[in-house]
Design a binder for these strands. Structure first.
Lengths: 196, 196, 196, 196
DNA sequence: ACGCCCGGGACCACCCGTTATT
DNA sequence: AATAACGGGTGGTCCCGGGCGT
């Protein structure tokens, strides 16, 4: 079994990763320099490339870290609770997140808007997250429908995509307006008009 | 009568303005350099600052140009047609726009996601566009309700904000996925479940 | 006979000239841009080269304006008063000037220090001013000696050069220290130890 | 034993530092670009900011380097020799320096004249050098007086300031006139009329 | 025919993401 | 693991001339 090369090393990488997530989230990909990241992490500049192959690789790391923090697994049936309850809990969680990160929006949506286009590693990773996220919501929607908690007739994946789109749009609007209102209205509308 | 100072001048500024809009739209604010803009416009670099005070000032110009191209005035009662018809026409127009600019998303949403935060000139301009856009939609919704074309009970401005959020989210998702599907589903859902 | 083309024109040139003198004096030759000068003068930028051939030509203008304001002609016998009295009056005048322009030093000395070297139009103009200035002082010194007001045996031009050097050094020291002390001490020493 | 991180590093920094001193001395602060410095040093452009935080930081380095080369410590009693002898030796040294750098004047005086004003890092560093320089001269003057080598009654610091002012003025006059005469006359006058 | 605006492009200080060296 | 090297790039400014408009 491999022993960790050095405690400092693993810790440095961790700090780099965390600083990067925070900075990418707040200032975007192009708005964040690797200089910014290493100084926020308190690491020497050249060290960066011992831990990550490139700035893009770090962005990929930030995407998966961010996605992991989204707790989409709480939508899964194995998480317990009624299907609709799991969805509303997730939405509530998302609303709280948006409030916490009022001035940053959602990292996934930010990257989706900023990164030039398709066929780019970061863009693909973001799209994959969206796909998995939507799939998780869609799964819960199907279960809710089966449990007779929800009667919308549209395909579950369409409903899920609609919700995700609304969430992302509300998050960026909240960011630019500096207000939680758009997000609260999105949440209210979604609960009362879509998840019925 | 106002004298056009110089034909060449106005034309150069125009070209700068158009190049900037295209580039900001495609590559974002931080992803576009002044150099990129002037070379796309075929103008010498030093000329740039004869026409615009800064890169930020140009971005402001791009925002208003883009907003003007959104034709929100077609939502106005003075544009003729039934209120709901005007809204659906606007939505159709937006859908076509999103298809045309599939790889760019919506400039307003892109800037909203990329630009750090509130209390920034570009951010404020974007927010003002959103506000006016939402107000235009809300106005048409109120008229549609009066005309008995629409029966949703939520405040018109909430409905309008919800639609805008969904549109922006769908646009960025379309961009990152390289597919028109998210936008089409957004349009379908909005027409069948919200504007009723 | 040429009529003054336009009142505005002459006035603009005047304003340009005055702004330039003030700015060159405060910020140096390389530290002052023609942009700075035209905006301080409230003149349109392109107009500049209608009035002056180049930035260097303007600097030459500033040098002669500044030199004219030095009132070296008050050292001349035609100005009346005892020779030594004229010198001390001039020194007093210079001291007051240095106090007024505490943060700028002497334009001539500033240019002498900043301008690269000999065989440069501005440098030559400055040197010519120094030569004329020293000659005026030397003339008064000779007269003072004849009038038995002064008994130093050194050649008058050496005495004058020494005084000028001390004045320029004191002016720049006053500038950098932000204090009038170096100038006051120079004046006191010169009166008590040199002009005797 | 401390390991010199890299031989190349220290050497590059050294070359940058030396090139900067020479260029600032010859062409002034605003007349010298970072580009000029790195190409004189034969260093790649981006390397500059690995060694110095800014152009101003380099200027500060040049000031202390220049001041160190002034050998003011030879005025100190610990340097041996009679007090007045130490002063005259220093003055002789300064005269030789001025001859060597005939077309450049004194870096300290040049900066004092060029740099806008007080409350600027470079200006403050220059003023501090002047203060220490004057203090060293004043110290030797006091000792010379005690040793009965010198009988001037003015405060030593006033005498020292007067000498410094004269030296700086003579250096800039020598520079602009391209002649050693002003400096020689300053030296002669100082020795025969001040240090007595 | 003159005053002005814009054209023009080299240049400014400084920073970029990355890699070779130690 | 960490430094300095690397050079092209950043947004912005330079001084100046040539052509347009009155």
């Amino acid at each position: 079994m491999a022993r960790p090369r050095s405690a400092a090393s693993a810790e440095t990488k961790q700090r780099l990763s965390e600083s990067a997530l925070a900075l990418f989230h707040k200032r975007g990909y192009n708005g964040t320099s690797v200089q910014d990241i290493v100084s926020a992490a308190g690491a020497p500049k050249g060290t960066f490339y011992n831990h990550f192959a490139s700035k893009e690789a770090l962005a990929l790391d930030s995407v998966s870290r961010y996605f992991a923090a989204l707790n989409v697994e709480t939508l899964d049936s194995s998480a317990g609770g009624s299907p609709l309850g799991r969805i509303t809990a997730h939405l509530r969680f998302l609303g709280d997140l948006a409030e916490t990160y009022l001035d940053r929006g959602c990292l996934l949506g930010n990257f989706a808007s900023e990164i030039p286009a398709h066929s780019n590693a970061v863009g693909e990773a973001v799209e994959e997250c969206f796909t998995r996220w939507a799939a998780a919501i869609a799964g819960a929607i199907d279960e809710a429908r089966e449990a007779d908690e929800l009667h919308a007739t549209e395909p579950a994946v369409v409903l899920a995509g609609y919700i995700l789109a609304g969430y992302e749009g509300a998050a960026s609007r909240s960011k630019v307006s500096g207000s939680t209102e758009p997000m609260q209205q999105f949440l209210g509308m979604t609960l009362s008009r879509i998840l019925v």
